[in-house]
């Protein structure tokens, strides 16, 4: 059981654009998730984190085309359509979405939304299912009586906890969390991260955390993949990304992140990411890169090893040993 639960290879996603100008939102992303892994996908808003996750889970709409390979336990699920992915939904791969308010159905109780995904061994009665839902709520630090509540009757932090309880209902092996703490205040943010940390330990859960905040992901994840313009530009141990970033974007992203107790000025990254509906020549980051050279506009750098378990996609780091 030491093989990866999830193997993603060369994932590409295009969205239909007006006049055939398709948006190439995810460009050749690959990663593995092994049991108990804590992986982070990091990058500015719009860099393709959510699209990557939805593409892996087969949840993109009809306007998206996906290519590449996604394997769960070695079984290809991308090419088989919905039917291939169906057996792994929630039972193996589940997800907590950003903005818990709308991730929960506003006209149904929290309990019923948890209960509807409980594994049905034989005939589980409604009462038993709700009791189990209550236990799951207790597991995430809520009172069991919250099963009878509607989402609008809970605070933002409580809704996010309820979403996590719901994500646990299928007893998954990999939990995706897409910006689970965005729109929450700092104290609640820390509580949610702590909760995810504890659950991952207790349940042997692998976590894929998606966040725009490079500083935050280090609290939960030991490995991170930095994405820019739909691509992985650097991948390595979180500590290494903080102390020895090998891609200029990672460095600038970290400098733009407030870190508690760090006495340094905050610098935002100038400019904005490139449009993805035209083919990119050269490095996608060169328009904003302080280190750009002539060759950066000629060829797109490949993701190459720069240290053990650490890879970066920059012409300059490729040269440095």
């Amino acid at each position: 059981m030491n093989g990866p639960v999830l193997e993603v290879r060369d994932l590409n996603v295009w969205f239909d654009g007006p006049g055939g100008r398709d948006v190439h939102a995810v460009r050749g992303v690959s990663f593995d998730v092994r049991p108990g892994d804590r992986l982070a996908l990091v990058g500015e808003s719009g860099c393709g984190k959510t699209t990557t996750v939805l593409g892996v889970l087969g949840l993109l709409g009809a306007t998206a085309s996906v290519s590449g390979s996604v394997r769960v336990d070695g079984q290809e699920v991308l090419t088989g359509g919905d039917a291939a992915m169906a057996p792994y939904r929630w039972g193996d791969l589940s997800i907590v979405f950003q903005g818990a308010l709308n991730a929960l159905n506003p006209v149904r109780t929290v309990g019923s939304q948890i209960a509807e995904v409980l594994p049905r061994d034989g005939r589980v009665s409604r009462r038993a299912a709700l009791r189990r839902a209550g236990e799951l709520l207790e597991r995430v630090g809520m009172a069991a009586r919250n099963v009878a509540f509607y989402p609008h009757e809970l605070s933002g932090g409580m809704r996010q906890r309820a979403c996590i309880a719901m994500a646990l209902a299928g007893e998954p092996r990999v939990l995706f969390a897409d910006e689970p703490t965005t729109a929450l205040d700092v104290v609640v943010q820390a509580q949610i991260l702590e909760l995810l940390d504890r659950l991952a330990d207790e349940l042997g859960l692998a976590i894929v955390l998606i966040s725009h905040d490079l500083g935050l992901v280090g609290q939960l994840c030991d490995r991170a993949m930095v994405m820019y313009a739909g691509r992985a530009v650097e991948e390595g141990p979180t500590e290494g990304l903080y102390t020895a970033p090998r891609h200029p974007y990672t460095r600038l992203l970290y400098e733009a992140t407030p870190v508690l107790g760090a006495d340094r000025p905050l610098r935002s990254i100038g400019g904005s990411p490139p449009a993805l509906d035209v083919p990119l020549a050269g490095c996608a980051f060169r328009g904003r890169c302080p280190d750009a050279e002539d060759r950066c506009s000629l060829a797109e750098p490949a993701l190459t090893p720069v240290a053990p378990a650490h890879r970066a996609a920059c012409h300059l780091t490729g040269r440095t040993p």
Binding site: L59, A86, W90, N102, A103, L104, V117, M166, G170
Partner: peptide, 13 residues
């Protein structure tokens, strides 16, 4: 198009 429908799809319903 709401998020809770995306959640429902992710739940495998």
């Amino acid at each position: 198009a709401e998020d809770y429908v995306l959640t429902a799809r992710a739940k495998g319903l």
